[in-house]
């Protein structure tokens, strides 16, 4: 109770809402690190996932590599990222964190995108091709829009993981909300530590919600209706 009270006091202390170590700055840093990482991962994973999903070529190799990547802990990535960053003369903090987060996000997006495209009803693809769509049109006008809910789910999954893991950046002198946790631990300032953890959790949840909103905006209502119709008997039977 006293610790929670201390956390509350820490969070509501106006001093902690100002300056380079203030909550708004740390949130901005956190989002910037996460955003850059997700963006780079997206640029790599999305086209690759769409390509192997559409052609089904090189899928086994790619997915196997991705699964190995997924098995590695994020801390290991950070350990690799540090010397890599030094070698590239990118310094401490921001870039080592990004270099560690990108390979964390890529498998989540790529495997999901691949699976989403593969999961599109083959009859739709055949109808599209039979009506005279070129391969890129089949992908862009049919496969991607139909697979979109799952593709977005993969991106959301990756983004939430990145936001949570970006905390580690503080270990390599990066900014972001991880600072509160690392510094709190170092200074045995548990109110600061816990406040940092709570803020990270809130930011993760916000990310989750943001993607739900995005999905609602970009996914065709026709697919939502489809899913609701399919979900109906299930909801009754399962519970």
């Amino acid at each position: 109770m006293t610790l929670l009270g201390a956390v509350w006091a820490w969070l509501t202390n106006s001093v902690h809402w100002q300056g380079s170590d203030g909550i708004p700055t740390r949130i901005a840093e956190h989002l910037w690190i996460s955003g850059v990482s997700v963006f780079i991962a997206l640029v790599v994973a999305l086209p690759l996932g769409l390509l192997i999903g559409h052609t089904n070529r090189g899928a086994l190799v790619t997915v196997s590599i991705m699964n190995v990547g997924r098995a590695l802990p994020s801390l290991a990535f950070l350990a690799f990222a540090l010397p890599a960053s030094f070698a590239l003369n990118l310094g401490l903090g921001f870039w080592p964190t990004v270099i560690a987060l990108v390979p964390l996000a890529i498998p989540l997006m790529l495997v999901n995108t691949y699976a989403a495209i593969r999961g599109v009803d083959p009859d739709l693809v055949e109808a599209a091709r039979g009506m005279g769509m070129r391969e890129l049109e089949v992908l862009g006008k049919v496969e991607v829009p139909v697979a979109l809910p799952l593709i977005i789910a993969g991106i959301r999954n990756a983004a939430v993981t990145v936001v949570a893991t970006a905390t580690l950046g503080a270990l390599v002198a990066g900014g972001g909300l991880g600072r509160y946790i690392v510094d709190g631990l170092a200074r045995q300032d548990y109110a600061r530590l816990l406040a940092g953890a709570i803020l990270v959790a809130l930011l993760s949840i916000t990310t989750e919600v943001a993607f739900a909103v995005i999905e609602r905006l970009v996914v065709s209502p026709g697919l939502r209706l489809d899913r609701e119709r399919l979900a109906l008997p299930d909801a009754g039977g399962a519970r």
Partner: peptide, 21 residues
């Protein structure tokens, strides 16, 4: 592609695009 655009094609599963009206 040009050939298919000039030939109507209907399959049993219909293959209507669920995301399109």
């Amino acid at each position: 592609v040009a050939l298919r655009r000039r030939i109507g094609y209907v399959i049993q599963q219909v293959g209507l695009f669920p995301h399109r009206t």
